[in-house]
Amino acid sequence: MRVLAAMSGGVDSAVAAARAVDAGHDVVGVHLALSRMPGTLRTGSRGCCTIEDSMDAQRAAAAIGIPYYVWDFSERFAEDVVDDFVAEYSAGRTPNPCMRCNERIKFAALLEKALALGFDAVATGHYASIVTGADGSRELHRAAAWAKDQSYVLGVLTAEQLAHAMFPLAATPSKAEVRAEAAARGLTVAQKPDSHDICFIPDGDTRGWLADRVGTATGDIVERDGTVVGSHEGAHAYTVGQRRGLAIGHPAPDGRPRFVLEVRPKDNTVVVGPKEALAIAELAGARFTWAGAAPADPTLPFDCEVQIRAHADPVPAVARVAATPTGGTELVVTPAEPIVGVAPGQTAVVYVGTRVLGQCTIDRTVSAVPAVR
């Protein structure tokens, strides 16, 4: 099988490419140039897809003995990930750029080009499993090591994309084993730090980065009953669940800290309240997909688990597809116990056992603690 190995310059993708070769596949390595600043350098574990990562990927490909190319996807990345990130924050939502990158770059733009060039699959260093049924259908499942499981960020994959995906690290019990294997193979990335944070904001200053692009505008910080308790310099700088940086001039009547409960970009208002008001009894999203076969009748409630962050614990829930007042449909998820700190724009991934059933981008939430008017 002809396999295109996406090589980020990290240890996981390098070992994944090597294992694909060991499995007998005809493998070609490719690094995606996603930055419009090709001279960008990596700072420790911050950032990825830099010129240094490209060189690390090239050295790994040479050590493995496979052809290596760099593909410029910077324009597509800017439009589909960076611009989307800015637009979501401007709309008062909290986006997950890693989800958008997997959805629109690694398993859309990259896979599309790979198939056009005659490749059968794209291999990545993600920790997740694909299970093939007797009828040839494929399901996405958690990796063997739950501590490193990355199935959440792959929840956006469709059945067609799963049909051409390959995750050689699926059964690996630990990251330490991957690093040891990389060292044994003579790969110089064996001890390279994992990347974290948002790759296109390598200094970690999301508020400052957004202010440069969206601008600042003074607005009110209000309680749920509309009482003004402070001011801010731009609603885009706040996310649901945030406590620090509110700069409220006086304490709440009960003396307890306030948290961001809602961001309203239309009137540039940030709504705050007690921590218990962050508890969410229901969440829903109209932008939903199924990772493989959908439930036989998704309009009937079905038991599942829901996960709203990459490293959050899954929560027992009931889900169903329901009609919306505008004539569309949405995936509605009702957790068995309220989930704290759910923000519109986040991704809710639905599991049945270890299987990723599907996902939705959260459009609305229902608080378990209604506001007192």
Score class of each variant (00 low, 15 high):
residue 269 T to N: 05
residue 2 R to H: 07
residue 167 F to D: 00
residue 302 F to G: 00
residue 159 A to D: 14
residue 202 P to Y: 05
residue 90 S to F: 12
residue 234 G to P: 04
residue 105 I to W: 02
residue 68 Y to G: 06
residue 286 A to L: 03
residue 231 S to F: 08
residue 69 Y to W: 15
residue 60 A to E: 09
residue 293 A to K: 07
residue 21 V to W: 01
residue 7 M to F: 04
residue 342 V to R: 00
residue 286 A to V: 10
residue 38 P to E: 02
residue 364 R to N: 04
residue 16 A to W: 01
residue 140 L to T: 00
residue 270 V to W: 03
residue 287 R to W: 04
residue 32 L to A: 14
residue 35 S to R: 03
residue 367 S to N: 04
residue 200 F to V: 07
residue 79 E to Q: 13
residue 115 L to R: 13
residue 315 V to C: 14
residue 173 P to V: 10
residue 251 P to I: 04
residue 302 F to H: 02
residue 278 L to K: 12
residue 310 A to T: 06
residue 272 V to T: 14
residue 30 V to T: 09
residue 54 S to V: 09
residue 316 P to M: 10
residue 268 N to R: 15
residue 24 G to N: 07
residue 113 K to Y: 02
residue 65 G to R: 09
residue 8 S to D: 08
residue 122 V to G: 09
residue 63 A to W: 07
residue 49 C to R: 09
residue 317 A to F: 06
residue 60 A to S: 15
residue 363 D to Q: 07
residue 130 I to C: 01
residue 243 R to W: 03
residue 281 A to R: 15
residue 51 I to A: 15
residue 26 D to Q: 12
residue 219 G to E: 03
residue 202 P to Q: 05
residue 196 H to M: 05
residue 319 A to F: 03
residue 238 Y to S: 04
residue 346 Q to G: 11
residue 214 V to D: 08
residue 271 V to H: 08
residue 65 G to L: 07
residue 120 D to V: 12
residue 61 A to M: 06
residue 84 D to C: 01
residue 156 V to K: 11
residue 228 V to M: 08
residue 185 R to P: 03
residue 205 D to A: 04
residue 186 G to K: 02
residue 41 L to D: 13
residue 199 C to W: 12
residue 343 A to G: 09
residue 4 L to I: 08
residue 306 V to K: 09
residue 23 A to L: 08
residue 233 E to I: 07
residue 359 Q to S: 13
residue 105 I to C: 05
residue 100 R to Q: 13
residue 111 L to V: 14
residue 230 G to A: 08
residue 117 L to W: 14
residue 150 Q to F: 08
residue 238 Y to P: 06
residue 119 F to Y: 15
residue 112 E to V: 12
residue 230 G to T: 02
residue 220 D to E: 12
residue 300 L to F: 02
residue 77 F to A: 12
residue 370 P to G: 13
residue 304 C to T: 07
residue 342 V to S: 00
residue 104 R to W: 06
residue 44 G to T: 13
residue 56 D to E: 09
residue 332 V to P: 03
residue 28 V to M: 01
residue 49 C to A: 12
residue 35 S to W: 01
residue 212 D to N: 10
residue 188 T to P: 07
residue 257 P to G: 06
residue 139 E to K: 00
residue 331 L to W: 12
residue 320 R to F: 01
residue 312 A to V: 01
residue 238 Y to H: 11
residue 107 F to M: 14
residue 350 V to I: 11
residue 305 E to Q: 06
residue 195 S to K: 00
residue 230 G to W: 02
residue 82 V to S: 02
residue 115 L to E: 11
residue 347 T to R: 11
residue 148 K to T: 08
residue 99 M to Y: 08
residue 39 G to Q: 12
